[in-house]
Design a protein around this nucleic acid. Sequence first.
DNA 1: ATCTAAACGAGACGGTACGTCACGTCTTTTG
DNA 2: CAAAAGACGTGACGTACCGTCTCGTTTAGAT
Lengths: 212, 212, 212, 212
Amino acid sequence: MDEVRRPGRPRDAATDRAILRAARDVLLRDGYAGLSMEKVAAAAGVGKPTLYRRWSSRVALVGDVVWHSFHAAVPGIGRPGPQAGDGATQQLTTWFRAYASSAGDPRHAAMILALTAAAAESPHDAESLYRHHTRPQYEAIVDCLRSGVESGEFRADADLEAVADALIGSVLYQLLTRTGDAAPQRAEHLLDVLLAGLRPVTRDQPGRAPRD
Amino acid sequence: MDEVRRPGRPRDAATDRAILRAARDVLLRDGYAGLSMEKVAAAAGVGKPTLYRRWSSRVALVGDVVWHSFHAAVPGIGRPGPQAGDGATQQLTTWFRAYASSAGDPRHAAMILALTAAAAESPHDAESLYRHHTRPQYEAIVDCLRSGVESGEFRADADLEAVADALIGSVLYQLLTRTGDAAPQRAEHLLDVLLAGLRPVTRDQPGRAPRD
Amino acid sequence: MDEVRRPGRPRDAATDRAILRAARDVLLRDGYAGLSMEKVAAAAGVGKPTLYRRWSSRVALVGDVVWHSFHAAVPGIGRPGPQAGDGATQQLTTWFRAYASSAGDPRHAAMILALTAAAAESPHDAESLYRHHTRPQYEAIVDCLRSGVESGEFRADADLEAVADALIGSVLYQLLTRTGDAAPQRAEHLLDVLLAGLRPVTRDQPGRAPRD
Amino acid sequence: MDEVRRPGRPRDAATDRAILRAARDVLLRDGYAGLSMEKVAAAAGVGKPTLYRRWSSRVALVGDVVWHSFHAAVPGIGRPGPQAGDGATQQLTTWFRAYASSAGDPRHAAMILALTAAAAESPHDAESLYRHHTRPQYEAIVDCLRSGVESGEFRADADLEAVADALIGSVLYQLLTRTGDAAPQRAEHLLDVLLAGLRPVTRDQPGRAPRD
DNA sequence: ATCTAAACGAGACGGTACGTCACGTCTTTTG
DNA sequence: CAAAAGACGTGACGTACCGTCTCGTTTAGAT
């Protein structure tokens, strides 16, 4: 837990920030394909070894850039809120609106696309990216849904992970194929259908049972 | 309809096939990140200029590879079927099962990921990839849903495009973050929720109205 | 002597001329380094095979271009004149003046340089270029000098080939290292020294004997 | 005089030597036409960028190769000697014999031809090649001749540059059109004529006056 | 106050791949 | 059958980055 004091000159925290800022700028300007370590180093006024000392690869760097950008700009986003009083429906709605509307912001859209590009390019890196950047969010959504089940808001037999995949994937697919501009409206309508589908079954309106 | 006869030696169709086959093999072996024009040319036994004469970029080539692989291997896939007698619910179910199960096949998964990587990497190429490769499928799904609305199977006020985004995006997100192995089961469950959410409203069980 | 009538469509002599003209233009504009078969074919409005059917290589083509340009433009030049009445001294002077002054013309200079480049680049081609393009001229000069020896104008013990090398080489070296602009004046002065050195020895002013 | 220490890792002098050696070998084996940057880089065990970092073009590289080969192998050559006691005639004779005999050595002949090819191919490069590689030698010859004029060994009215052109050009023309094998003998005989032509005029044997 | 070890900028280095140009040969269709 | 058009395998071009490796300099903590 305690930071080990190694001898020699310690790393300059300002350098980390300069690199992250430069990388973010390059990412926004040139996209993931146009982001080279060389360009980032030059833009940050930093030597390449300094860069590699901190991030072992382009993917690792991009991962951190996305993480910082997301959390710095929209702190609440990323996980269903701690607005404890609300019901699960309300929490989910609030979070998904924020998430979808962030897709309409080109700065956030670029980050999501960068992460997607990194993951799609090489399955190996995808695994660690998922573990560090996407899974916490994903699990928070599932937890929220589960609390909804427990509170009786949602059907007990629904596949919560399938719903989470659909929510996140819906936004992702829009960003990949068109822009994120329509995402907020789409989000409302998707919530409309999904929440209806999640509503507990009554006698008159039985849900369609899953097969396995 | 008539193929225009240009002067000069015509291109060798066998060369096209050799290149596509080589590119597909490289894609499966090394992923999108490992696919270089040089490697493809060498594997196809072809000069680089021959390759560039036909595909102006890596993205264009990968797009075609995916298209061919998909249609050659699983002809029916890609669009909701022409099984005319079935209702929209049945058509959609049939198609989505096939689509999700193809995500479990590593060969198809690689193709979808390659397309995703290409689109995520540079928004410019994304637009043309979408137009040529994904939109037809997307529109077929929306058409299928629309016919369901007309036949009274689905609610008239549902956002059909939001549903299509959710279906495709769900599979995509699974592939990106984990594997496609769970996709078939997930697909059943997602259909379960979505179809329930699309069911026309009765007096006793009103649907939640969209906000705008 | 008799032109053999081969079957099939005869070659178009106008095509030859178009190619030679195009090659000459490219040579003047882009130099020997900038002359590619591709460029010549395009400029002549001719297919590459047509070009290769007539000239087997760049060197062969350039050789012909030079030959035609030289003889078309300055018919008398190239060999010591047939002005039969003149003495050898006069013939040599007349020829060398014409030769040196042609080096001042950029069009001729380019031709000489092209020939030089071709010869210097590959010794193999140099041999055939020499045989076809330079040797006749060279031998005419030596013959002229020999006639001067026979008429008593020049020393009998002089190495006539050494003199011919010096005359031609002098102009060549000027073209290679500077321009040919100064060549005409230089030529006068070189003739002055060489003719003095070739003058038959008198008792009072013995020539320096060669060693072998 | 002091070597400026630029920041960053300094260039490896051994790499320069390896490249020059490799380039020389390729030049001797394949001639100027067969020398590609790619081949040189491979032969030197060096990446192409390393090569281009030091020499911006094939011409520049060949120029340096020639310069090094000449000076490494035959230090005295290249300029009339500092054998101070000798008269100008002796100096000139000594230098020209060495120069002509070097043309008989295939290794030197290849270097001279390479330089010639480079210069003939593109007039633009020719200028800088002349300035760096040939002019110093040329001026040394003219200086030697001038000192001969001052000492009374040579005529005051002779065009010394014309003589220098003839000496160098004579060897060059031999190399281009035949081999350099005959150059040493030819050199003796050319010196014989030229020195005779340069001898100061006496009353009985007036020199032929130049025209302008 | 000195020592020491790491961080730092700069940039050289062996590589791989880029996308283009020209090579010389080969198939086509058209005249 | 020649000619134009152009595809083809090959190979070199000159450039961009890769990730690693020296360099000489700076900078903090330990002595």
